[in-house]
């Protein structure tokens, strides 16, 4: 089985888990949840296909998938209102939960490596993450005010 087939299977599988979370956590019905997830998967697969085109494959897949999703949601794109209405039924948080569950299940292998590190890396990592978030947010706040966007 090649890499793209594997990716397709993984997308469908994780999409199903997202639908389950959408039904349990946000009380959306099964039909809307599955249909919404299906549309999201199809857009993801189109993005994946685009990213394989020679020449375009120089940029990461995440870029092309983003671009394809943005195009599908443009007001002028035919059927975009339908796409948005259908996918809106899938809650953002329901999409994130299975992803972070997979992330969690892979942490064990990092725990062993982590034990070998000095404790010093913990405050440093927290400072790195805080720095990138907070400085970007502060700059954004000032420029948004200046641009009159807020």
């Amino acid at each position: 089985m090649n890499k793209l087939q594997n990716m397709t299977v993984a997308m469908i599988l994780s999409g199903l888990l997202m639908a389950v979370g959408n039904v349990i956590g946000y009380h959306v019905d099964w039909y809307s949840s599955l249909l919404g997830v299906l549309v999201i998967i199809v857009i993801g697969l189109i993005g994946m296909a685009v990213s394989q085109i020679p020449g375009l494959n120089k940029l990461p897949m995440v870029f092309w998938i983003s671009i394809v999703a943005i195009i599908f949601s443009l007001p002028d794109f035919p059927g975009s209102a339908w796409v948005i209405q259908i996918t809106k039924k899938v809650q953002f948080l329901a999409v994130t939960t299975p992803i972070l569950a997979y992330a969690g299940l892979s942490l064990g292998k990092d725990i062993e490596l982590f034990k070998k590190l000095s404790w010093k890396i913990v405050p440093v990592t927290l400072a790195v993450m805080t720095g990138t978030f907070i400085f970007a947010a502060i700059i954004a706040q000032f420029v948004l005010k200046w641009e009159g966007a807020i």
Partner: peptide
């Protein structure tokens, strides 16, 4: 460890669905 690596492998693919979900908010 092998199973954890499989989970780590699925993570970026499942992430693509989140990227789609967020991308769909950009157009409007």
């Amino acid at each position: 460890t092998k199973q954890m690596e499989v989970a780590a492998g699925i993570l970026p693919i499942a992430m693509m669905l989140l990227i789609v979900k967020i991308g769909l908010d950009i157009g409007p």
